[in-house]
């Protein structure tokens, strides 16, 4: 019943929402937005210890500085197979300083997940801040996110802080209407609090993991292919937790002409 009550909200947001991201870190945050009234469709496949996940994202530019995204993750494995939540995100770029062939930007981010199958699945809310410097040759990004995890019956997963720094390089300064490869290297850090179950703190949960993530962005006009690997290199996980495995990501993004 509560899921049904959520449905109109989801539909309304989906109607409002469509959006984009362009040249940004694959595992971190970036301040890029899409042109006003522009929209984009993106699909990504992610492989990690949790199994394979596909995200289908619709992105929309309300203004040139304000973008919204609706994301439908589809899990191929595990207990939550299928689509069991919708993630809604928004980004507002509050600072932009442009120069010839370069730009500095700052943006705030916020988002939340809504379970859509009998309220199963994790609920969370996040807020973040990102900085980006982009020139013809170099990219630099940094970002921080705080994620508040909701309760799943008696279980409360620990809240998470994610920080990222990324450097990107465009080896060939090609012009518009030419293929454009950009190589990325990210340093991603995740700190998580211990989880709580039935009022008890779980000792073998939480801790931190530092990962190094090389990636590639390859664009041609309004199409971009993305691929990257997140490799955990250092961890300080609590209890007897093992170092997490690598994460793989591959995706494609299409930008469409503005609707006005």
């Amino acid at each position: 019943m509560r899921a049904l009550l959520n449905l109109p909200i989801i539909v309304v947001i989906l109607l409002l929402v469509e959006q984009v991201n362009a040249h940004e870190p694959l595992f971190g945050l970036g301040p890029h937005t899409i042109y006003q009234y522009g929209y984009a469709l993106e699909t990504e496949f992610e492989q990690s210890d949790a199994g394979m996940l596909n995200r289908l994202e619709l992105l929309y530019g309300i203004t040139a500085d304000w973008a919204v995204t609706a994301s439908l993750p589809y899990a191929y494995t595990g207990n939550n197979r299928g689509v069991n939540k919708i993630v809604l995100r928004t980004k507002y770029r509050f600072f932009r300083h442009d120069k010839i062939g370069a730009s500095k930007q700052l943006a705030v981010h916020a988002g939340f997940s809504l379970p859509i199958q009998n309220l199963k699945g994790s609920k969370y809310v996040f807020a973040g801040l990102s900085y980006g410097y982009e020139s013809r040759r170099h990219y630099f990004f940094s970002g921080i996110r705080y994620r508040f995890n909701g309760w799943e019956r008696t279980l409360k997963r620990g809240n998470i802080i994610l920080t990222d720094v990324a450097y990107g390089i465009r080896p060939w300064l090609l012009e518009y209407l030419q293929p454009d490869p950009v190589f990325l290297l990210e340093l991603n850090t995740q700190w998580q609090n211990r989880s709580i179950n039935n009022g008890k703190t779980l000792k073998s949960t939480g801790g931190y993991v530092v990962s190094l993530s090389p990636g590639l962005l390859f664009s041609y006009r309004n199409i971009m292919l993305k691929a990257g690997i997140k490799i955990p290199i250092i961890n300080g996980l609590n209890g007897g937790q093992k170092m997490p495995g690598k994460e793989y990501i591959i995706g494609i993004e299409f930008h469409f002409p503005p609707i006005f």
Partner: peptide, 21 residues
């Protein structure tokens, strides 16, 4: 036109569409 902030071909697509409109 002299346009500032133009650094990647992917982003230039939006500019092209806006100007052509």
């Amino acid at each position: 036109l002299q346009v500032e902030g133009l650094s990647c071909p992917f982003c230039a697509y939006g500019l092209e569409k806006k100007l052509k409109a």
